[in-house]
Design a protein around this nucleic acid. Structure first.
Length: 455
RNA sequence: GCCGGGGUGGCCGAGUGGACCAAGGCGUCGGCCUUGAGAGCCGAUACCUCUCCGAGGUGCCCGGGUUCGAAUCCCGGCCCCGGCGCCA
């Protein structure tokens, strides 16, 4: 059973609590309860009427010719009554569905209660961040409660945006001429780096048992509605004009849609996918934030982890997914922290979310690189993905789905540019990527040299 | 894009307006039988509601329509197969 409906009927207090800590409307729960009670009443009533109608229709089939006219008259009267009942039921049903579908995923007990990202709770810190003297105080504040080794530096690293732009590896000025703000041309060494990150991520995840996949980059509206919330939709999604198609904002969406309408046999679960796709995002409502460089852009490449699993296993998989992402940033030697995102900052779809935030030495802040969510049955209910004892057996319930970034290339590149920067501006390439860069004659292998010359 | 054929349960497949359940087969699950397995036999195997033993409703790609009654007839959409066209 869908968890929202289950809790509505069995433990409405829990739903109310979830709404409360999210800062969402608690009244929706009462409203839903009311509508559901009414719906059940009307449903019983209509089933009775339909039963009468069916019996009537059967009688007519067997009746003699002169009886028939009379019975048909009676049946027509019954039909009018039925039509009325059907209309009311549909109305209540639609209203109930609207309310239920507008209720965000139920917050997990382990999620910290809070209202904004300031209430997110850091749970782990990794690495040896380079901290410029001017940021020391703020840094210490950000890692309070953790015993973090750090390297104090007197020179201030150049920000990723300035570094990449001035060295000619990124041209956002010309990109804005041809496509607008938040687009970019990326050149030479950063292209190789981008490709190497993708290949490396797919290499690691496929070794861990993930099926690697290139999904469709466009989706029908119906499927998109199953994986995301209306608010995300409005803020993120590009539409293809004249078609019922939308550009994907992440591989998560086509991967969640992959098994829509299917009942998966238990013994085939979990299904582990690593999707590679471009991500197209409007970034509406982000005006003035991260306007320079390739940190926040309308289009980037990402390798995404996605899992379908049994409900009782999803919390364990959630930990595995964030550990996978952490492993990757550890191998890239990028200092980071993991935060447990608080109830008010969760987003509608997730029941719990971890963000992995890389240390950005030029900004003196931890910035989001990875987002790792357990969406429980929010997506699987909407998309109709269920599980059964065996192939062909009746469905026992809805699967849980989870998603986590593995590598979003452009953001990861910004973290590499800042963390691996030497005082002279040379950027050391993470050793783990060397193998993938060696495939290409002209690709840099150990260092990226800023050219300081624009072409 | 155009023309033709098609879409029925987890799978195969019958059913072209009404007779209690969408026949039958395969698969899966339970039971009987067997030393064990197999075969065989019996039963179960979509969703929803209720007073949950049981009764009833809905369901044949999706959405509308015709009819007292639709898997079946009509309209729109999506997808699949074949042919033509186009194309990397």
């Amino acid at each position: 059973m869908w968890s929202i409906l289950y809790y509505l009927r069995n433990d409405a207090a829990k739903l109310k609590w979830s709404q409360r800590v999210r800062g969402s409307d608690e009244g929706l729960v009462d409203k839903a309860l009311e509508l559901d009670t009414e719906w059940r009443r009307l449903k019983s009533h209509m089933d009775k009427l339909r039963h009468e109608r069916n019996q009537m229709a059967a009688k007519i089939g067997k009746a003699s010719l002169n009886e028939r006219t009379k019975l048909i008259e009676e049946a027509k009267r019954l039909d009018r009554e039925l039509e009325e009942a059907e209309k009311r039921l549909t109305e209540v049903e639609e209203a109930r569905e609207r309310v239920l579908l507008s209720i965000p995923n139920i917050v997990h007990e382990s999620v910290p209660v809070g209202t904004s990202d300031e209430d997110n709770v850091p749970i782990r810190v990794f690495g040896r961040p380079k901290v410029w003297r001017g940021y020391l105080e703020s840094f210490l504040q950000q890692v309070k409660g953790f015993n973090v080794e750090y390297e104090l530096i007197d020179w201030r690293p150049v920000g990723h945006a300035d570094l990449s732009e001035e060295s000619g590896f990124v041209d956002t000025v010309r990109a804005s001429k041809v496509a607008g703000a938040r687009f970019y041309y990326m050149f030479d060494d950063l292209v190789w780096l981008d490709l190497a990150l993708v290949m490396w991520a797919l290499d690691i995840l496929s070794s861990k048992g993930f099926k690697i996949v290139i999904p469709p980059y466009m989706l029908r509206r119906k499927l998109l509605e199953g994986v995301t919330s209306f608010s995300d939709f409005e803020d993120m999604i590009y539409k293809v004009e004249g078609e019922d198609l939308y550009l994907v904002a992440t591989a998560e969406h086509p991967l969640a849609a992959l098994h829509s309408g299917e009942t998966l046999p238990k013994d085939e679960l979990p299904l582990l996918y690593a999707g590679l796709s471009p991500c197209f995002r409007k970034e509406a409502g982000a005006h003035g934030k991260d306007t320079k460089g390739i940190f926040r852009v309308h289009q980037f490449t990402k390798v995404e982890q996605f899992i379908y699993c049994l409900p009782e296993e999803s919390w364990e998989w959630h930990e595995t997914l964030i550990r996978n992402a952490e492993e990757m940033f550890q191998k890239l030697e990028i200092p980071y922290r993991v935060v447990n995102v608080c109830s008010g900052d969760l987003g509608v779809v997730a029941a719990k979310k971890y963000d992995l935030e890389a240390w950005m030495p030029a900004q003196g802040k931890f910035r989001e690189m990875v987002s790792c969510s357990n969406t429980t049955d929010y997506q699987s209910y909407r998309l109709g993905v269920r599980y059964a004892r065996a192939r062909g057996a009746p469905a026992e319930g809805y699967v849980h789905t989870l998603n986590s970034t593995a590598i979003a290339t452009s953001r990861t590149i910004t973290a590499i540019l800042e963390n691996n920067q030497e005082p002279d501006g040379v950027v050391r390439i993470p050793k783990i990527l060397k193998k993938y860069l060696e495939l290409f004659e002209k690709a840099p292998k150990d260092h990226i040299e800023p050219r300081k010359v624009k072409s």
